[in-house]
């Protein structure tokens, strides 16, 4: 049986009763967003199978609670950035489904105008600093955004997400050291979905309590059940408040991806068993929140059906609108290489 990691010693612990302090409206928002991500990703998987999406496509199914709970704890002027598994994060940050799907289809309506694709979603207006394709390569960028905030005397915080595979990369360690040394306003969020592609975390490090790595840098840290959106929200809220006061933090959020690493990877291949996947499916973050809301009389079966119907219709409409958008004009192939362009063959 797989090791089920539950919340343990949390450096930034919150009282449990805070869960009840969240309004029905807030919980409904969480549920709606998680369902939107799930629906968008399921549609993306279908579209990928139909050849409408090129390249790589890494689905977020199973990890929705991390993006939704953590991003809900930010202010609009805070910065968010993540890895190539970025569709769910983009949606949680507020990028419209049509702009996400448009990017997946390589169309001009895409949030990166069809230049980025699945792995490189950006939105400057929403302070979404991107999806990044090199494992560990973007952690220093987030640290730089936090430096920027402090340099200008602002109190904006950075939420920098990465997978547990990045924790063994120099970029992670160099960034934590600098952030701690200079007291930068950043929360490093490790989405520990247990596998870096097909390599289990136990096969990559002797220190499997990944959050403890922050101790090397004198940084606050904690472990969070990343399948529980309420816990993610609460712990993120506290960590962000600390970061805003100049105390960076490292949160390890234990979660699980229900699909393969990418579209070429089956749901359960030789590196994990069907039983393990089924076991984690019992902790499906959408299921957990739905049960919580039902148990507290916060949602009826009718409201749930209506929500599902709305989300499904919304994503279907977004898909149609994205597919109706044209591909970028080949004549624009040289756009955006430079902000101050070099014009070949011209002087002055």
């Amino acid at each position: 049986m797989p090791v089920k990691k539950k919340a343990e010693a949390v450096a930034v612990e919150a009282p449990k009763q805070q869960k009840l302090a969240l309004s029905k409206q807030q919980l409904f928002h969480f549920l709606r967003q998680m369902r939107q991500i799930r629906s968008l990703e399921e549609r993306s998987a279908q579209a990928y199978g139909q050849g409408k999406i090129g390249g790589f496509c890494h689905l977020y199914i199973g990890q929705e609670a991390v993006a939704v709970g953590a991003v809900a704890a930010t202010r609009p002027d805070d910065y968010v950035l993540t890895t190539y598994r970025d569709h769910g994060m983009a949606l949680a940050r507020g990028i419209q489904p049509v702009a996400i799907l448009g990017e997946l289809f390589g169309r001009v309506i895409g949030c990166s105008k069809g230049r980025g694709g699945s792995m490189h979603m950006f939105d400057k207006q929403l302070n979404f600093l991107g999806g990044h394709g090199i494992v560990g390569g973007h952690i220093a960028l987030g640290t730089g955004a936090a430096f920027s905030s402090k340099y200008r005397g602002e109190d904006r915080v950075v939420l920098c997400f990465f997978g547990e595979g990045a924790v063994h990369n120099g970029g992670f360690h160099e960034s934590l050291n600098l952030a701690s040394l200079w007291g930068l306003p950043i929360v490093f969020v490790c989405e520990n979905n247990r596998y870096g592609m097909g390599t289990a975390v136990e096969r990559t490090t002797k220190v499997v309590d990944l959050h403890k790595k922050a101790e090397s840098y004198g940084m606050a840290h904690g472990i969070v059940n990343g399948m529980d959106v309420l816990e993610v929200y609460e712990q993120s809220k506290r960590a962000i408040a600390g970061a805003r006061a100049g105390i960076p933090c490292f949160l390890e959020m234990t979660c699980y991806r229900f699909r393969g690493h990418s579209m070429s990877d089956p749901v359960h291949s030789h590196y994990r068993t069907k039983e393990e996947v089924e076991c984690y499916r019992e902790q499906d973050p959408i299921l957990l929140l739905t049960e919580h809301m039902k148990n507290h009389g916060l949602i009826t079966d009718e409201e749930l059906s209506e929500l599902e119907r709305q989300v499904s219709a919304e994503i279907r409409a977004a898909m149609d609108a994205a597919l109706a958008s044209p591909e970028p004009d080949p004549a624009t192939v040289f756009d955006y290489i430079y902000k101050n362009p070099i014009r070949p063959g011209t002087r002055r």
């Binding site: 390569g137 730089g144 430096f147 905030s149 200008r152």
Partner: peptide
């Protein structure tokens, strides 16, 4: 020291930090 920063020996770290700072207006 608010404009001139000595760093540890961490080229990947401070190069990346600089790029992130440039993305956000510095």
């Amino acid at each position: 020291p608010q404009r001139v920063y000595d760093t540890p020996i961490t080229e990947g770290g401070f190069a990346g930090l600089g790029i992130g700072a440039a993305m956000t207006g510095l």
